[in-house]
Nucleic acid binder design. Structure first.
Lengths: 141, 141
DNA sequence: TCAATATATTGACAGAGTCCAGATTAGTCG
DNA sequence: CGACTAATCTGGACTCTGTCAATATATTGA
């Protein structure tokens, strides 16, 4: 994997019209670096990188990037929110034992799997899928 | 829909080997009555019915019933946990505007849709699906 | 560089859920 | 029926995520 340079991250921010601050750069890079990280983990990582940030700045940055679609958030049951930089339609695979997570491509290819058996008249714009199970490391024998 | 009598609920509890208490009865009936209710809503409903309960008793009862598979819990992003008495494999449809929720049968019929494009070696036991969209009442025109 | 605007910091606060220790109650056995 | 023992319930403190609001600071563009 290509290491994310500062300029990659700032290009990303500029590309969507956001001003570039040290905090946002570090937050974006943390999200790239730590896959499926929680806000807390991102906070820690950012502090490693730039010394200090407020929790609020991290939440703000994540929220802003989310609105600009360069960061995505999901909330697995029993966990706090997770952030990722892969923003296309995809799903997640989570181990009930150790909590490890993998990305999975959308089950129906590029078209999102937006068609339930009965849509009850709803206009559906997203199908969020989480596959729960046991990862290879946690499977006995 | 058949109204849930006290004996329905106590039969349910006994059927899975749980002792029958006023609190559990009321909690179970509340979950039946209020579809997709939060713990807090259940608490209120139970208080209406039997006068008083501790929050803890409600959480304990829900947890116990969950373990015994007569109550199911799910946690839509941005909401606290929801409880329901329908325990077979099914999914949910949620309105982003008003938060209304519907049950949807499993997309693949009785067999759960347990097959992602790539399972990364995980043993999958559940596919949790939430369809996000706009309900008829919230759709303009 | 400077001003206007957007961000960041700080500290208080809220909601959901859990932990713990002691009191109470249900189910069981003699 | 009465007492025993395990299961439940109560109340209160506490943790963890996340948000709000006011003030201070940095970024951007002229």
């Amino acid at each position: 994997m290509t290491p994310t340079s500062v300029s990659d991250a700032s290009d990303m921010l500029r590309a969507v019209g956001l001003s570039v601050t040290a905090q946002r750069l570090a937050v974006y890079r943390a999200v790239v670096h730590l896959h499926h990280a929680t806000a807390d983990q991102i906070c820690e990582q950012v502090r490693h990188e730039i010394g200090a940030v407020s929790r609020q700045a991290v939440y703000d940055a994540l929220q802003t990037m989310r609105v600009h679609r360069i960061v995505r958030r999901f909330e697995p049951a029993g966990s706090s929110a997770r952030y990722e930089t892969r923003v296309d339609n995809h799903h997640h695979l989570i181990c009930r034992q150790c909590g490890s997570m993998c990305d999975v491509d959308c089950a129906k290819g590029t078209a999102p799997c937006l068609h339930p058996v009965d849509d009850h008249g709803y206009f559906i714009d997203e199908a969020e899928v989480i596959y729960w199970g046991t990862c290879p490391d946690c499977t006995p024998n």
